[in-house]
Each structure stands twice: as structure tokens, then as C-alpha cells.
Design a protein around this nucleic acid. Structure first.
Length: 637
DNA sequence: GCATCATCGA
């Protein structure tokens, strides 16, 4: 009985809505101008439809809400923000027929959001006489996607409920991403269960994504495993989650399962799998993915991911061949190629690609210029770097931001112009952040300037008192200078704060399996043969003049111990593993979590000569291609 | 007729 009463009025309301909608559609346009306007809003072109608004106004005619909504959508696709404001002003002054007024306003709010004008969207929202679940969802979603407005999105959700509007699947799938802590996410998850929306595919993929982004892999996994029905996006979410959290093997495994479950290898999943390969330097797996990519020749995102994978795996031949063959290229393709070349020590080519890009009329973005400046700094091209930095605003309309300033400090610092770098920092218009000081600190270490290093480290610690990197670099600098007391003081400060130095790790792919080596750790099942091989290699390269450079051991220890520490650096273990297992004629590809030390660099150069093998090592920022006794970085890194 | 999830470059 009770429920009947509740249902009745709602059904009636729906009936009235339906009939009014029918009226809107069937009512013949009483005026030819209105008929033309309606037709233009369906067929376009947008400018012609827009141009009719003043005529309608002066004729005293009211446009129907359906056409106005279509016009707003056209505006998002083909128009500009000021066209949008024009429509908004027209609607505000002349209105729309009443039953559809709310929908028109909603589409205007959404339009402002899509143009990135959140403030305008909120202002319109505030002034609206009525709001429905769509209105609220549009705003909640906009806040959830804006930087630093996640809490506000959650507050809007509360306000929405207080206003008597119940969130639906659209709302939840938007707001889940705004949950910044596991607790909030768990509560929101519970809400979706309570209203029975947790099985909605949109909500489910948001849940998975949010759990993964907060680092709760098991949480994401369990939402996924409970799934009875899902779509390919849900699969993509879980695969992307594993790929992004660095579990490439898990991502691959899920990808195979997805195919087993009858889903084809779609673009989203392939892109995520490529990302996993990119992170793990699994070139062979990446090549297999490439075979699947062939049938999506129009998918730029996928091709860009493939391009990046080849660059990050150090295979510039593949990258270059793909880049030439790509049916379309956008600025991301170009930027990827420029950075890829620069990171692989081919700065001059990176700059030529940049020239080519400009000559093809593609406008660079701020990221492109980061790549260009990176190329300059890693090749010691101080003059070119200055030129691009100084002229980027005039030539491309891109104002130098933090990253570009950082590249300049790197450029000057690497080149040994430490005083100039410091002067640059003091004179720059932005407030120097810890990243900049860290760059200067790195340069100080490279050029063994302990005083300036100490200054830079103090600046970092002022901004970030618990910064591990600053303390490590500072103590390493002291150690480089054999100032053991200062080094020890710095280490002690770290220990007191409970900090530990991250151990060096290297990864290598062998027959689609990834092997990890940790410095000083001989627990790998093949350790015996690896140590044997290491001894053999050291014997061979000693004949070429190799002497362990114990000054790269940053602790005050007896020489034998230093040699042992050096010998078992993770990249040496990986190289020895590589030379025993690598295929004839194929390069040995290694990824590292820390920068390569000078001794390992010399070691790798000589091994490339004595064994006639190409060794490629990728560290967090760049690559070293060792061949025939030389490195692509020209010993400048 | 308006609002939702995943996938690319420093």
C-alpha cells in the first residue's frame, strides 16, 4: 500500500514529462526561422546555427530546449569558449521553453567544464533555481578531475545528498576517483554496495582504478575477482592498474586471461601492456604486442605507447622505423621521439628531429621543449640550450616553467659551470624548489664541489627536512672528497631519522622472463655460474687495462672489501648473467633503479669490447649503449 | 535531449 502511494506520483510525473516531450517534438515550428535553427542544430554547420541566435532574439522567438542543447554540444566540438558564453547569454536573456530549461542549463555547465572553465561552471551552478542528479554529477565529476579539488568533490557529494538528490552510477563512477585515502574509498565502496550499484561496469572499473591508484593492489584485485559480468574497460582498468604499479608480469598474466575469457586484444589493454613492457624493458614481449597493434593502425595513443616502449627499451632502430611508418603523428609522437633520442645519447639527432617537426608545422608543447633542453644538457650543448631557453617564449609562445629552468641548471651544472648555475637559480623568476636544488647538488657531486653541495643540500633540507636524496648526495659528496668524518656525520643523521639507502637493483629480460639482481645479493639460482662468469670477465678485461676504481665505493673500508662491494654491483651481476645467456648477435638490455657508477661504466665498456657484445643499460633518466669499448654517452652523464 | 570508467610524451 505504502509503496503504491510512493510510486503513483512519480509515474504520473513521468507521464507528464513524456507528453510534454512529445509535444515539443511534434509541434510544427510556427516560424520558418525556428525550423531553420532546429535543422542547423542537427546538421550543422555550427557557426551558421550560432549566427541565427541574434535573429531569433530580435524576432522575439524562443528556441526549443532540444535544439539549444544540441547547439551547446556542437559548440563543445566545433566552437570556442566565447561562443559558449554567447549561447549562455542568449539563454539567460531569452530562456528556453520551460520543461527543458534544466537540461539546457545542465549542458551549459558541462560545456564550461569541458572548456576548462570550472569557475564559470560553478557560478552557473550556484545561480540555478533547480538542480537534478545530472547537474550535481556534472559538477562533482569536474571537481574530481580537477587538480587539488578532490576534497571539494566529496563535500559536494555530501551537499547533494543533503539536498535530497540520490547519487546514481554516473555520480559514483566520478566521485570514486576523488577518494584520497583507503578509508574514504572503503566507505564509498560500501555506499555503492548499499544501493546495489557496485556491479555497474562503470562503477566497477572506477573502484578498481581507485584501489590501484591508492596502492591497494589486493583491493583492486578482489573487486575484479568478484565480477560476474564485465566489459573490456573493466579488464583494461585492472591491467592498467598492474602495469602502473610496476607489476608488469601481473599485467601480462591478466592480459592473457582476458584473451582467454573471449575478449579481443583491444587498444586500451594493448596500451597498458605496452606500458608494462616499457617499465620492465621487456623488448621481446613488446615486439609481440606490436604484432597485435598492426590492426589498429589508426590508434595514435597505441602507436605512441609502442614508440615509447621501443625508446625506453633502448631500441632506437625499431623506434625510428616505426616513427617513419606511422600513418599519423601528433605532438606526442614527436616529443617521444625527441626525448627518446636524447635519452639514448643521440642529442644531435634529437635536435634535427625537432627541426623537422617545426618544418612540418607541428607546434611544440612545453614537454617537447623539456626534451629539447634535455638533449642539450646531456650533450653539453650549452650555447644551444641557452638559445632555446631564451627564445622559447618568443618562438613558440611557451613560457619557461619549473622543468625548463631545471634543465638549464642541469645544462650548466653538467658542463661544470657551477657558479653560473647558482647565479641562474638566484636570478630566475620562479621560486627555486627542491628539484632545482637537487639538480645543482647532483652537478656539485659530479664536479666534486663539496661546499656548494653542502649549500644546495641545506636548501633542500630547508624545504623538505626528511629528504633522503639530499642527505645521501651530501654524504656521497663528502665521501668522494675523502672527508670521512663529515660523511659519517651525514650518514648518522640519516640513520637517526630511520632512513636507509636504497639498494641498487638491475633487471634483465631472458626468454620473456625478467630476472632481478640486487647489489651484493647472491641468492639468484644461477649465482655460482654468475660469479664464475664475473671472474672470467674481470680476467679478460684486466688484460685491456681494467682496474677496479674503488673510489666509487662511498664508505671508508679496507681496499679488499671495497673491491668486493664493487664487484657485486647489481649491473655487473646482470651483465655476467647476460653474457652467459644472451643470444648471439643480440644486445644485452638492462634496467637499473639507480644511476650507474663510474666503475660499472668502465666495466661495461670493456666487456662490450672483449666479448664483442652490445650492452644497453637504462637508468632512471638515460641510457648507455656500450659497444666496442665506447659508450653512447661519451662518458658524459 | 544534459552527467560516468580504462589506455600515449618530461
Amino acid at each position: 500500500m505504502n509503496s503504491l502511494f510512493k510510486r503513483l506520483p512519480r509515474n504520473r510525473l513521468a507521464a507528464t514529462r513524456r507528453s510534454s516531450r512529445r509535444r515539443l517534438h511534434t509541434q510544427p515550428h510556427s516560424h520558418p526561422l525556428l525550423a531553420t535553427f532546429s535543422r542547423l542544430c542537427v546538421e550543422g554547420p555550427f557557426p551558421a546555427a550560432l549566427a541565427l541566435l541574434p535573429d531569433l532574439a530580435s524576432a522575439g522567438l524562443r528556441a526549443d530546449p532540444v535544439s539549444l542543447t544540441r547547439l551547446v554540444k556542437l559548440c563543445v566540438r566545433h566552437g570556442t569558449a566565447s561562443d559558449g558564453r554567447l549561447i549562455h547569454r542568449h539563454v539567460a536573456a531569452h530562456g528556453a521553453l520551460s520543461p527543458g530549461g534544466l537540461v539546457v542549463s545542465n549542458s551549459l555547465v558541462s560545456m564550461y567544464v569541458k572548456f576548462g572553465l570550472l569557475d564559470d561552471a560553478l557560478r552557473l551552478f550556484d545561480g540555478m533555481p533547480e538542480r537534478n542528479v545530472v547537474t550535481w554529477t556534472t559538477v562533482v565529476s569536474a571537481l574530481a578531475n580537477a587538480d587539488g579539488k578532490k576534497d571539494e568533490a566529496l563535500r559536494f557529494l555530501v551537499a547533494m545528498r543533503r539536498d535530497g538528490v540520490a547519487p546514481n552510477a554516473y555520480t559514483f563512477s566520478s566521485v570514486l576517483g576523488a577518494c584520497g585515502t583507503p578509508g574514504v574509498l572503503a566507505a564509498m565502496h560500501a555506499s555503492t554496495v548499499k544501493v546495489g550499484l557496485d556491479s555497474d561496469v562503470f562503477v566497477r572499473s572506477s573502484l578498481i582504478d581507485s584501489y590501484m591508484k591508492l596502492g591497494d593492489l589486493d583491493g583492486g584485485r578482489s573487486v575484479f575477482d568478484e565480477m560476474v559480468t564485465g566489459d573490456s574497460v573493466v579488464w583494461n582498468s585492472i591491467i592498467a592498474g598492474f602495469a602502473q604499479s610496476g607489476d608488469g608480469a601481473g599485467a601480462m598474466e591478466l592480459f592473457m586471461r582476458m584473451k582467454g575469457a573471449g575478449f579481443s586484444a583491444n587498444q586500451g589493454a594493448l596500451t597498458s601492456v605496452l606500458r608494462a613492457c616499457t617499465g620492465m624493458v621487456t623488448l621481446e614481449v613488446g615486439r609481440q604486442v606490436h604484432a597485435h597493434v598492426l590492426k589498429y593502425e589508426k590508434d595514435l595513443i597505441l602507436h605512441n605507447a609502442l614508440l615509447d616502449m621501443y625508446c625506453k627499451c633502448g631500441s632506437l632502430q625499431d623506434a625510428d622505423a616505426l616513427f617513419r611508418r606511422m600513418p599519423q603523428r601528433d605532438v606526442i609522437s614527436w616529443s617521444t621521439m625527441i626525448s627518446g633520442l636524447a635519452q639514448n645519447g643521440r642529442s644531435t639527432e634529437a635536435l634535427s628531429v625537432f627541426d623537422l617537426m617545426k618544418s612540418e608545422g607541428v607546434a611544440p608543447t612545453c614537454i617537447t621543449l623539456v626534451g629539447v633542453l634535455f638533449a642539450c644538457s646531456h650533450a653539453g650543448l650549452v650555447e644551444d640550450g641557452w638559445y632555446y631557453f631564451k627564445s622559447m617564449e618568443k618562438l613558440f609562445g611557451i613560457r619557461p616553467e619549473k622543468e625548463h629552468h631545471n634543465c638549464m641548471v642541469d645544462l650548466l651544472g653538467r658542463a661544470g659551470k657551477l657558479d653560473e648555475a647558482l647565479k641562474f637559480i638566484h636570478e630566475m623568476s620562479l621560486d627555486p624548489d627542491s628539484v632545482i636544488w637537487r639538480t645543482l647538488l647532483g652537478a656539485c657531486r659530479m664536479h666534486k664541489n663539496a661546499n656548494l653541495a653542502a649549500y644546495a643540500a641545506r636548501e633542500i633540507l630547508k624545504l623538505e627536512p626528511d629528504d633522503q636524496g639530499a642527505r645521501i648526495l651530501l654524504s656521497n659528496t663528502y665521501a668522494d672528497l675523502r672527508q670521512w668524518t663529515d660523511a659519517e656525520k651525514s650518514w648518522k643523521a640519516m640513520r637517526d631519522r630511520g632512513m636507509k639507502k636504497e639498494p641498487g637493483r638491475s633487471w634483465i629480460e631472458l626468454e620473456k622472463q625478467v630476472h632481478v639482481f640486487i647489489a651484493g645479493d647472491l641468492s639468484h639460482p644461477c649465482s655460482d655460474s654468475i660469479v664464475q662468469e664475473l671472474n672470467r670477465l674481470i680476467g679478460r678485461i684486466s688484460a685491456l687495462g681494467y682496474v677496479p676504481q674503488t673510489e666509487f665505493v662511498l664508505q671508508d673500508l679496507p681496499i679488499e672489501q671495497k673491491e668486493d662491494l664493487l664487484k657485486y654491483h647489481s649491473e655487473k651481476l646482470a651483465i655476467a648473467f647476460g653474457t652467459t645467456h644472451a643470444m648471439e648477435g643480440k644486445p644485452i638490455r638492462i634496467m637499473k633503479n639507480l644511476r650507474i657508477c663510474g666503475d660499472c661504466h668502465a666495466f661495461a665498456k670493456l666487456v662490450s669490447k672483449s666479448e664483442g657484445k652490445v650492452v644497453i643499460i637504462r637508468d632512471p633518466v638515460r641510457f648507455h649503449h656500450f659497444q666496442d669499448g665506447a659508450c653512447s654517452c661519451g662518458d658524459y652523464w
